[in-house]
Structures are given as C-alpha cells and as structure tokens.
Amino acid sequence: MSTSARLGVLKTYKLFVNGAFPRTESGRTLAVVDTKGKLLAHVCHGSRKDLRNAVVAARSAAPGWAKRSAYNRTQILYRMAEMLEGKAEEFTRVLASTVPGGNRRAAKEVAAAIDRLVAFAGWADKFGQVLGNNNQVAAPFYNFTVAEALGVVCIVAPSEEPLLGLVSLLAPVICAGNTAVLLGSEAHPLATAIFGEVCATADVPAGVVNLLTGKRPELLAVMAGHRDVDGISAAGCSKAERTILELGAAENLKRVTVEKINGPAWYHETKMHAPYRIQPFVEMKTIWHPSGV
C-alpha cells in the first residue's frame, strides 16, 4: 500500500449564467493560486461572448423578476443568506487561503456578507416606501412617485473583499427587482465562482443573477457599450476604468454608479445597509390622476 497522501481533485469552476453552470465559450481558464503560490483551482476566463449571453439571460428574466411581489423577493434574498450561511466554512477557507489576512479576516468577511444579504432581504418590500412618496400638487390631482426597477444592471465587483464586495453591489440591485450580470473580483475570482452555487440553491430564478469571472480590460468596454444594459454599478475602479464605463454608457445613457469604498468602509453597516444604495438602480415614476366625482 502506498503511503503517499491522497491526490486532491483540482476543480475548474464554471460561470453561472441563466441558472446553469456553463464553461466559457472561449475555452479559456485562469489558474487560481493560494497566498503561497500553490495551485488551488481553475476558473473560467469569461469572454465578451459570455458577457453578451449573460445579458440576454438577464434581459429575459427582468420582467418576471420585477413583477414578483416584493415579499417574494424578500424571501429569496433571505434564502440566499441562508445558503451562504451553510457554505460559510467553505467560503472562509477559500478566502483565507487566497486573500492576505488569514482566517480571522476571512471569517469576518463571510459574516458581513451574510448580514448584508439579510439587510437587503428586509429592504425589498420597504425601499419603495422610503424612496417614493405622494406629492402635494396645487391642483385637484392624486399624484405619487414610485420607485421601479431599471432593468438589467451590469456589476463590476471590486478586487478586494471578493465576497463582501460582490454581495454589497449585488444585493441592492436585485432587491429592487433588477437582474444582474456581475463580473467578480479579478484578483480573487473563487468567491464569485462559488457564489453561483448559493444562487442556484436559493430559489433565485434563472437569469436574475449571472456571474462571470474574467478580466476587466476585456469586458468593461463591452458592458458599458451594450445597448441592452440599463445600468452599471462598479467599485474599486481606476480613473481610466471609470472613464471607459462612463464613455460607453453615454451611448444609450445608462445610469452609472461608481463607488469609492475601501477597506473598513465595506464593513460600515450604517452606510452599506442604507436604502440609498438601492436608489441609483431604480427609476422614479410619477403618476398623476385627477381627483373628482
């Protein structure tokens, strides 16, 4: 009998698009190494075509997701929190081995990500009450302003805090009834790759969350210029990346939000759980109706 250690199974993580786990159409992969440089796994090196496919999935899922009751979206976001809690150990292990800061930092990040999902689960049926209102117009009209989903939002997750950053940008977007195409942390893509498993088991309808791993220089301009994308949410961007996003977005006047959130700010609950983080991803619709008999 051999005394050598059992050979581990090296997994290649796939993309998460339209509720399924396809490989990238490009056939390319990226190696993921741990902090000591040892090979841990491979992830898909997503292509422009993968991005366009994901947008198609997100667009077809958008009307159905927006039409679901807010209460139902609340439960699905909460289910995501439940599934993430169940995978907390796995995420902690992966983050600890790939992101400097070790186990303690990783556990803290995972806990914050779970709590963030819970917070936005709670917002799904309340943000409309906070962001909208009735308007006291000087005429016999009933006039009110309501918040509606934008549609399809592309998300550029930050490199740091690979899981918390992803969840912090994703939760406000889908909470409001938008569907999302998310490009995960370029430096640490494993959390993104595994997060697909959370979505797949949390009753998230196919196409509502689409997760890509890959490289920003290839994908940002395509996201920004895509005519069937309504909004962009990004964090951890250089000035040049921000310019690419805003320039492309001008083509069809996408709503672009580029946040500067660094280090401890990701853990600032008052700021990060505010309903105002949903505001950039809704449209305010004002409805007038005459009042009279």
Partner: peptide, 25 residues
C-alpha cells in the same frame, strides 16, 4: 418618468419630472 392618467401636460414644482431610458436621468 411621468404618467398622466386621464390628463396630460400637468406640471408642479412638488411633482418630480424626468425620464426613463434615453430621455435622460
């Protein structure tokens, strides 16, 4: 961004105005 029901072209300072899509933001 604005829907007028059984009315049209009503405006008021208290009533937000602005567009969806390529009508601006």
């Amino acid at each position: 961004g604005v829907v007028w029901c059984n009315s049209y072209n009503r405006f008021d300072a208290a009533s937000p105005f602005g567009g969806y899509k390529q009508s601006g933001f």
